[in-house]
Design a protein around this nucleic acid. Sequence first.
DNA 1: AGGTATTCACATGAAACTATTCTCTGAGTTAGG
DNA 2: TAACTCAGAGAATAGTTTCATGTGAATACCTGT
Length: 400
Amino acid sequence: MLKIGNYFENFLKKDSLFVDKSVLLSSHYPEDIPYREEQIQEIANILAPALRLERTSNLFVYGKTGTGKTLSVRYILLSMRQIAEKNNIPIQTIYLNCKLKRVADTEYRLIAQLIKFLGQEIPPTGLPTDEVYNIFYKLVERKKQLILLVLDEVDQLTKKIGDEMLYNLTRINSELHHSQICLIGISNNLIFAENLDPRVKSSLSEEEIIFPPYNAIQIQDILRKRAAKAFCEGTVEAGLIEKCAAFAAREHGDARRAIDLLRVAGEIAERSGSLTISITHLDEAEHRVESDKIINAATNQPKQFQLVLYTLLLVSSPQKQIFTGEIYELYSTLCKKSNYNVLTQRRVSDILAELDMLGIINANIISKGRYGRTRQISISLEESVVTKLKEILEKSLHLS
DNA sequence: AGGTATTCACATGAAACTATTCTCTGAGTTAGG
DNA sequence: TAACTCAGAGAATAGTTTCATGTGAATACCTGT
C-alpha cells in the first residue's frame, strides 16, 4: 500500500478528538445565544410590527467584533421568516455583508444584490446606476410586501463610498406605494453615526441597540457549551477553556476569536496525535491564528502592496524604525531592478497607511520638527513569520 | 531667556486619468423567402 | 425582411497620477533685559 494510504488508514482508525467540528466554525449558528437575551428581545420588539406589515423603525446595531450582533440579528430574521411562512405573510428578509469585496461594496453592487434576492439577474457593469434603481423599484412594487434589509458592516460601505447611498435607501420608502423597506444597520464602529449626514443619521438610527462585549466569565461559559458539543468527552484538559477565554477577553471580549482559537488548538492537537488538548496546543494555536491572519492579508493584496511590504521586510528589524522617504527610495530601486512600474510617493504613502490598517505593519505619524513630518514604521512580526512572508512574496512577485 | 516665525518632509484631499470589463444600440451584412 | 455581426458609445470600478493644501515641532531669528 502506498505510504499515503497508510496515513489515511491511521486517520480512520484513530478516534478523532472532534465529535462535530462544525460547531466551532464561524458558519455555525447555535440555536440559542447566551447572554444576549435582552438585546434579542429588544430587537424583536422593534421588528415585530413588520409581521403585521406595518412599517417598523429603522434600526441600528452597534458592537465590537465578536459580540454576537450578526448572530442575533440573523437569528431573529430566521424566526420571523418562519413565522411569516407559516402565516403567509409577505415578508422578505435580506442579509448583506457590505464588506465582501465584489459583492456588496459599492452602491451599484449593493442594489444589484438586492435585485438578485428578488429573483432577477443584473449584469455586473455596463448599466447606469439609476437604471439599476429603477429595476429595483419595479421589482419591489410588483407585489405588496415588506422587506427587512440587513446591512452588515455598513461602516465599511460608507467609508468607501460615502453616505449618499444610505440616504437614497432611506428615501426609497417615500417613493414606494405598496411596499415598505425597513433598514437594519450593523456596525463595529461605535462612533460610526457621528460622521454621518444628519438627515441620514436621524432616519437610519431611529432605534439603536448596543451589544456590550462579553466578559471573561461569559466567554468561558460560551466556550464550554460549544466545546461540549464539538469535542469528545475528556479531551479538553483543565484550564484550557479559562486560558482561551483570557486570550479573548484581552481582545475586548471577542467570542468569535476565542472559538476560532479553540478549534485550531483542537486541530493542532489532533494532528500531533495527542489524545487531549493541552495548553501548549492552545499557545501554538494562538501563534498560528495570528500569523495566518497576517500572511493571508498580505497575500491577498495587489502586487504593488506586496512590493512595498517586501521592501519593508528587507530592511526592517523588529526594533528599527523606518520613515516613508527611506522606504520609498528603496522601493523604487527595487522596482527598477525587477522591472516593475514605480509608483509615486503619494501612492506609496497610501499603501503604507493601508498596510497599517491591516495590522501588518505599525506606523505612527510623528513630527521630527525641523526635519519634517512622516510615518515612523516598524514591523512587529516574529522572525519566522517574516521569513515565511518573504518567501511567499518572492514567489508571487517573481523576484530572485 | 523667552517668544515668534520658518521650515522640513511628508500627510492628506480632491479631481482627473487609465485600463479593463461589461452593456446597449444601431449600422451593415447575410441568408432565406 | 428577419437574423446576425460587429464597432462604437457609455458605465462601473480599481488603481493611479497630478495638483493643492495641511501640519507639528525642532530650529532660526528676534527682542528686550
